[in-house]
Design a protein around this nucleic acid. Structure first.
Lengths: 113, 113
DNA sequence: CGTTCCTTTCGACGATCGTCGTACGATCAT
DNA sequence: ATGATCGTACGACGATCGTCGAAAGGAACG
């Protein structure tokens, strides 16, 4: 039997994506910054996002985004790589992500709330 | 001096619209139903929306939408007419509202949470 | 006038949210 | 093995949210 040492990262399938959950995931400055950063630079480790919150808070935001189907995460060695599920979102909610990110202000990054 | 009998309905100007506030306003089944109904049928009185919540709850949702700049409201006689600020939203966040509403499920209306 | 209709305001309630510090785990380098 | 690094899990905290009922205020109409 396979017994994973680390908790498996569960991602919702495309059919299970819910619009309200996606909108809710995007309706936060920190999470919107994460998504905008991914849109520009592509996949990257968790610790490299230009946000100013505690690590545990960052983990919380990643979970919200992941369970909404906005991002995907994979383990590699010491770090966890995060990517945007752009294609899946586009298939389910065409144009939503692009429209939102096109309107996202640049200065979100270091926003302190 | 002008002393209005009823509280004036304050609507944010186009320049003051904030993306996060709009997304947050749309990230609720009841409010999304309100917006989708307005998109289809145009301006209508408060009491005519196909949602199943208490009147006071409905008032709360209208305030969230209004303060986010998603809807506008005007008094006329006994009732308050609500409309979508589609043009303003399009000017500030092009494509966002249309993309979201295009992906909004039809069955939202009577959703009971 | 009084009544009815439409909507709001005002608490109140449980639930969820965003935040953090601490502790833990897993990996890699020394 | 020891230590450093990266990220999570677990509470905990105040704040906000969505909901409701009760009460009240205008407006229209008898």
């Amino acid at each position: 039997m396979t017994s994973p040492r680390r908790p498996l990262l569960v991602h919702p399938s495309v059919a299970d994506l819910r619009l309200v959950a996606v909108l809710n995931a995007l309706a936060d400055p920190t999470r919107l910054t994460i998504v905008a950063t991914l849109r520009e630079g592509g996949e990257r480790p968790c610790g490299t996002f230009p946000v100013s919150v505690a690590p545990s808070t960052l983990t919380h935001h990643f979970r919200v985004l992941r369970e909404a189907g906005v991002i995907s995460q994979r383990e590699q060695g010491k770090q966890r790589w995060t990517d945007l599920r752009h294609q899946d979102l586009e298939a389910r909610f065409p144009g939503v992500l692009d429209a939102v990110l096109a309107s996202a202000p640049e200065g979100l990054a270091v926003s302190r709330r």
